[in-house]
Simulated assay, not measured.
Amino acid sequence: MTSKQESKWTAFAAKVAAHIRDYVIPQYGDEGEEPAQEYDARDCVEQSKRYLARFGKSQRPGEEHRDLLKAAHWIQKAFDRLPEKRNG
Rank of each mutant, 00 (worst) to 15 (best):
K4G: 05
E6W: 02
E6C: 00
A13K: 11
A14T: 10
K15Q: 15
V16H: 04
V16R: 03
V16I: 15
I20D: 06
I20K: 02
R21H: 04
D22E: 12
D22S: 01
I25G: 04
P26L: 05
P26E: 01
Q27E: 15
Y28V: 06
G29L: 05
D30Y: 05
D30M: 05
D30E: 15
D30P: 04
G32D: 04
A36T: 15
Q37E: 15
E38S: 09
C44R: 05
E46I: 10
S48R: 01
S48Q: 05
R50D: 08
R50A: 07
R50H: 13
Y51H: 08
Y51W: 12
L52W: 01
A53P: 12
F55L: 14
F55S: 11
G56K: 06
G56W: 02
G56C: 07
K57T: 14
S58H: 05
Q59K: 02
R60L: 15
E64V: 01
E64H: 08
D67G: 03
L68T: 10
L68V: 10
K70W: 01
A71C: 04
A71G: 09
A72S: 14
H73I: 01
Q76C: 00
Q76P: 00
Q76V: 00
K77Y: 01
A78W: 02
A78C: 03
A78N: 03
F79T: 14
R81W: 00
P83F: 04
E84M: 08
E84K: 14
K85M: 12
K85H: 06
R86A: 11
N87I: 13
N87H: 14
N87S: 14
G88H: 06
